[in-house]
Design a protein around this nucleic acid. Structure first.
Lengths: 241, 241
DNA sequence: TAGTGGTCTAGACCACCTG
DNA sequence: AGGTGGTCTAGACCACTAG
């Protein structure tokens, strides 16, 4: 049972995406919408601030709220964390055919750097997982993951090849995934990585690395994604103040 | 006169940065802090949610709020928009020696793509500005900006060479800068760009492009930053739900 | 059980924009 | 002047964590 402001946000998001509210159109005022949904303005504002952060609307003091134009979208878009949950790769691209190829999966001791990221002792084991991800059968990224084995003891290979790892972890821990702290860097593909993706070494790469945590603050996953920069871009919508 | 929740956020941020609250330490509860600052819990929560977004604290349901460890910082960090205002380049790196080299500055008609981004007619003029930015006298990025001349009629070259363009615009329009909608892409440096930075063509690049708006919704600036990927990374801190 | 953050209400006043 | 979003109050109840 999601919070009311999340339900309302999703309801209005769907209204925008299905063109019930059209681009550049003014949408009803906070006072109207709060009456429509039967909540106070404070609650409704939480919904609208989230929609603004997601880049779907623009709020302008004294004028009203407006549907923003979507970005032209020739490339796949790496979500920057404005969805309902931290999105795993397979959740993000559900409209196209996504698959995974498992390259390695083994238990090992993390190096000190990984152990520090996972806030664990270097003497405890982690799953190391290397997967190649494909969109419409084209390999587009390599992802290395280190997952604390104390949080998730076993990971079936079916999950790694087909399913959503994050959904599996939410199910088997009974906790939601909450926190993602990532760093974006640019680099060139090494020969090893390029071979996995069937591209030439030296092609541009967007490297996204970060820690994923459960809602109780447990760090369980550190991952590095090596994305083909000719296939991905990262959208970044926000409002300063 | 900033809002109370912004003042409180900055006050607690300074307490963290000056080690009055130490890393991994639990900070006082919402109820204590709201009493300390003389505001209600709702107001204080706005402050704390912002601090969480900035990656300074972690909030854990039932446990409390904790100071997070800073990321290791070997590279320059491109702020992702969690500060008080959209940060121009010269505001972001005030601790190191930052300078600019003005390459071009002229009035011209925008192409249709730029005009659409700036929500203006293609028959009106824009400033086109190309600058090379240097940190400690090393050129690290090229930035192209298109600025609607209807919003800012004249831009002194002193501002482009030394000062902060955003501060100048806030001053001469009398409005705050509010909105920044950006896209991050990876690419390789072309010969032309590489020459400007005195590097080899083919080096990796982080390309950051986006529109900047005033708080009344006026789009005034479209810019593309070509960042040396060996010098910059982008931090991305946030909390899904 | 006691303390924590998460959500929500029903107001109020302010600042900004438009006619 | 009237409508809009921006901020803030003073409560309340819930869900989660710990001892």
């Amino acid at each position: 049972m999601a919070a009311r402001y999340i339900e309302i946000k999703n309801s209005i998001r769907d209204d925008i995406l299905s063109n019930r509210y059209r681009v550049d159109e003014k949408i009803p005022s906070e006072r109207e919408l709060s009456q429509l949904y039967g909540v106070t303005r404070v609650t409704l504002q939480k919904s609208m601030h989230l929609l603004e952060q997601e880049g779907l609307i623009e709020r302008i003091h004294g004028k009203g709220m407006f549907v923003t134009r979507p970005l032209a979208n020739d490339l796949y878009e790496l979500n920057n964390g404005t969805g309902d949950s931290v999105l795993g790769f397979s959740r993000e691209f559900s409209q196209v055919k996504v698959s995974s190829r498992l390259i390695r999966h083994q238990l090992l001791l993390p190096g000190p750097a990984i152990a520090r990221q996972l806030e664990m002792q270097a003497e405890r084991e982690v799953h190391f997982i290397r997967r190649v991800r494909l969109i419409d059968n084209t390999p587009v990224l390599v992802e290395d993951s280190w997952i604390n084995a104390a949080v998730v003891a076993t990971i079936p290979d079916e999950v790694l090849n087909g399913g959503s790892l994050y959904e599996y972890i939410e199910t088997c821990t009974g906790k939601k995934i909450k926190f993602y702290n990532s760093v974006i860097e640019g680099d060139l593909f090494s020969r090893e990585m390029a071979n996995l993706l069937d591209i030439a070494p030296g092609m541009p790469m967007l490297k996204v690395s970060g820690v994923t945590k459960l809602e109780d603050g447990t760090a369980f996953n550190y991952s590095i994604g090596y994305n083909r920069a000719d296939k991905f871009k990262i959208k970044n919508s926000w409002v300063g103040k």
